[in-house]
Design a protein around this nucleic acid. Sequence first.
DNA 1: CAGTGGATGCTCT
DNA 2: GAGCATCCACTGT
Length: 190
Amino acid sequence: MTEALSAGFFARSVHEVAPDLIGVTLLVDGVGGPIVEVEAYDSTDPASHAFRGRTPRNAVMFGSPGRAYVYRSYGIHWCLNLVCEEEGSAAAVLLRALEPTHGLDRMRARRKLDEVRLLAAGPGRLCEALGVTREHDGLSLDRPPFVLVPRSAEPEIVAAPRIGITRAVDQPWRYGLKGSRYLSRALPRA
DNA sequence: CAGTGGATGCTCT
DNA sequence: GAGCATCCACTGT
């Protein structure tokens, strides 16, 4: 039996939660592995979906922390966020990559790809590998199909500017596991 | 390697 | 009608 994340884990500043998620193991229906790359988005952030206020798409971001916010990206991919802070804060962490360790066969089948390094190296790839879709939007992270397992040791974390955005491009709110080969893109050299 | 462009759907202006 | 919190295939060194 695995221990769950503490109840208040997500009820903190998104800027604290984001780096704390590096090394946490995410499973969706038993498929996943340790998170190696995330990005933080807060409500004052022009790059955030919530910046211009509540809409049908981003409604979950404005709800209680500890739930999944899933949206479609570029018409093709899904992206998974974990809602943080408190009701109305509209802050969330985008999951950008994890190390595939659980359910490799299911990930390979969904991704139609053998190479482990690329199974979940990117927000769209991660969702495809784990089978995350709109059906998961709004679901609590402390119940099936989600499982979050705390990390056992402090990882070495590198902060860097975020990827794929056009506003607030200089904020260093991307966090990655130093030296990981499962990132969506290499981290800047230290 | 780097750079470019197409696919595709939905949200918001 | 524009613009995406993307990925992949393809081109050219």
